[in-house]
Design a binder for these strands. Sequence first.
DNA 1: AAAATAGTGTCTTTAAGACAATATATT
DNA 2: AATATATTGTCTTAAAGACACTATTTT
Lengths: 257, 257
Amino acid sequence: MNEQAENVLNYQSNKYRTPDGAPADIVIFTITAEGKESTKKSLPVRELQVLLIQRKQWPFAGQWALPGGFSKETETIHESARRELTEETGVADVHIEYFNVYSTPERDPRGWIISHAFLALVHEKLLEKRQAADDAADVRLFPIGEALAMDLAFDHSLILRDALAQIQRKMLTTTIAREFLPEEFTISELYQVIQSVVPTFEERNFIRKITSTQSRKGIIEEVLDLQGEGKVSNRYSQRAAQLYRFTDYEPQLSIYS
Amino acid sequence: MNEQAENVLNYQSNKYRTPDGAPADIVIFTITAEGKESTKKSLPVRELQVLLIQRKQWPFAGQWALPGGFSKETETIHESARRELTEETGVADVHIEYFNVYSTPERDPRGWIISHAFLALVHEKLLEKRQAADDAADVRLFPIGEALAMDLAFDHSLILRDALAQIQRKMLTTTIAREFLPEEFTISELYQVIQSVVPTFEERNFIRKITSTQSRKGIIEEVLDLQGEGKVSNRYSQRAAQLYRFTDYEPQLSIYS
DNA sequence: AAAATAGTGTCTTTAAGACAATATATT
DNA sequence: AATATATTGTCTTAAAGACACTATTTT
């Protein structure tokens, strides 16, 4: 027996109780956009939605819950979360980030189970196929307000509240809005995305601020066409609007400067 | 046997491998202040320090590591972290926050061990007694630069780098500077604390900005004496400086407004 | 007086904030 | 022409940024 194996055995012989599992649970957000009427060109109604699944087994059979699953000893928790996300939605290469751990002793009747919560931002289009394919009624998007009012399995209502606070904070302090937008978008679209996540957000001179303030210049840039003229879109509007794209610049915020 | 016990047994019979432990590791930061010479009044040199312990046992015996320990099934990870902090430093009621999970399969030779990393901010004064009491050379404060250059046990060098990035971000976006300052402090002290955590921070008109800009007004306020006059201190300076204290106000940052 | 730290005056440029007005396309 | 969305003009006030200058106390 080599030294390490011996050490491990010595160590394990006087071991305490160990956890019964370390799952990753994922709050999958998307923003749906629906035109008011198909005949008129007008701004769509955007709404923040969250994906929930209906449990089939004990515990909490029949109740809605966040998607998730136990991590394996051969992967990191982060890899586990990505795997679950792909299994559940069929999408990969989307924004996913870890945000908190939940370990209250009585949170899971199956035992001592420490849950690691992630949030994922998925573009509506990527979920469309999936939604159509298995419309089995046990996986559904819920408007965030509705989901918050539901009695979810485990401590998932708490996790959902925390996830919403996190995405709201990040929506205002980082450029994650890009995850919900096409590559090229109008200022109105950006404004709507922000508002659908942070309903209290209001900025009268929004277009001014984001396009003509030196300190913010650089977050987004105008898209030009082949002639070097501003490229515009009239998908939602009568008067065509200038298209923008996000740059690589991430502003650094500070309360002291 | 009741229904739940039966369910748990059914569930456990076809269980996968479970983790061998879910410890909390704590990056304990403090800022030391030393006067240049004891004879002259002058601004002290402030330096960000981190507390490390020297391991006595396998694995990584003899190497320096972050303090920490396994969590129990009767407590949350957060409670476990607080318990460890008190055991290690003798202090309670300080700022401690969770910031990340570390779960790379080979990170711990003892098995499948998922570590939860916290960072704590402790005022120098609270650590003084402790440092004097057990100066056993197996618990020490290291300047952050020195600690970063060391080869720490496990993946603790990575955890330390992440903790530093987190505390630097928070130093500029929240009022955690208060954790390193006395209740009443001068503008210079605040400036020094910020600079000791974020060395690149520089703001020529710092006093102007923080005291006479409407949008930042409210973060700190002048301390008044019994006569309603500004209370001043000359502990570090020739000319006495106005004392300030933090208010309850936490500014909300946004890249869009 | 020299040194060391604290704080103010002043000026220029930029940004915030409010809202009226104009522009461009659709119905 | 009415409507709907996009964008600019204009004005006032606040803040940023630079840097020389003054103030207070110790040595």
